[in-house]
Design a protein around this nucleic acid. Structure first.
Lengths: 121, 121
DNA sequence: CTGTATCCCTGTGGATACTG
DNA sequence: CAGTATCCACAGGGATACAG
């Protein structure tokens, strides 16, 4: 018999999920992985992330820059050259990300099985 | 100097984030926490989750049931009585969830600081 | 090459009211 | 009590074209 739930148990929480900010969206986690081993250029990121559009990739990178996860470095010249790299804060996100990936590896099949079984009806 | 990125590095991935399915949404993680210590009734969940609407709470619980994270048990009688409880699979999500919460505790302030600094311009 | 500018579509979530 | 039924608003993401 559990205790009654505290009506204010989420009072200190942000409005959204307890997951690290904006890592639950469509591209952030993948960008993290792409930048894991070193700086990458804009066009270099577009390849494995296809079919991401330039607009969306820019938006994602800007948001990550704003949150201190990546740094953007522009090298003057023609053609233009821009590199994105992870900050220490960005690297620190691999800890929770690895935990999530481990869960998927261990239980993802079970989840899909449950989903398929539910669809039977 | 990192190797070139593998164009197919995300070929096996789902279209979305590598995070556990539907835990990145607005209510799932909070529902998990509410059900952690035992079964809860629908109206019992509404209290700490306010101002969630019945429609949205139902949708979230249905999706979690579909994914095998919770079980729904209805007890006949008047007034009606329904209890939701976590499955073993649901409980297993606390591992990645804890890692995310730990990140927030350790680095959340740093992220907010970066965000505020970025807003200065 | 590295983006911006528009326009648009969809899904998630919400407001409100009603039912078995 | 435990939902359903409607209707709706908004943000994320995408298609396409263009610019510095």
């Amino acid at each position: 018999m559990p205790e009654p739930l505290d009506p204010d148990m989420f009072a200190g929480c942000a409005d959204h999920t307890p997951l690290p900010v904006r890592v639950g969206d469509k591209w952030t986690a993948k960008i993290l992985v792409c930048l894991r081993d070193g700086p990458r250029r804009f066009s270099e990121l577009q390849v494995p992330l296809a079919p991401v559009t330039p607009k969306v990739l820019t938006e994602s990178l800007r948001a990550m820059e704003r949150d201190g996860l990546v740094t953007r470095t522009a090298y003057p010249g023609i053609p233009q050259r821009v590199e994105y790299s992870l900050t220490d804060l960005g690297h620190s996100l691999f800890a929770p990300l690895a935990a999530s990936c481990a869960w998927n590896a261990a239980h993802g099949a079970e989840l899909r099985k449950a989903r398929d079984a539910y669809a039977e009806r």
